[in-house]
Amino acid sequence: MAKTIMIVDDSASLRQVVSIALIGAGYDVIEGCDGKDALSKLQGQKISLIVSDVNMPNMDGITMVQEIKKLPAYKFTPIIMLTTESADDKKAAGQAAGAKAWMVKPFKPEQLLMAVSKLVQP
């Protein structure tokens, strides 16, 4: 069974492009448009990897990661943060929340794909 990856971003076009790339590589994809939306969609799913933006309306990425880490089923799920912030405090916040990996935006779909395939094979 294909592994499922969740992509959380407020930009619909980014979600679309990432989804096309991931589905093409053989993953299943669930989209979330912000932190709150993502959390609500996690329930009852088996998700192997979460790729999430930091800066989003309603609930930002950092808060979302903190919430996710509280869920027993997702305690050890790897999370890649997508971030433009080069500021170290943002990274530290993400790290403290439980996301260890991040990609600096902007990136090319194949860059994300390569990063993903290191953590989870389809």
Partner: peptide, 9 residues
């Protein structure tokens, strides 16, 4: 930020 990220893609 969003425009930049998508444009990058």
């Amino acid at each position: 930020h969003t425009i930049k990220g998508s444009a990058g893609l």
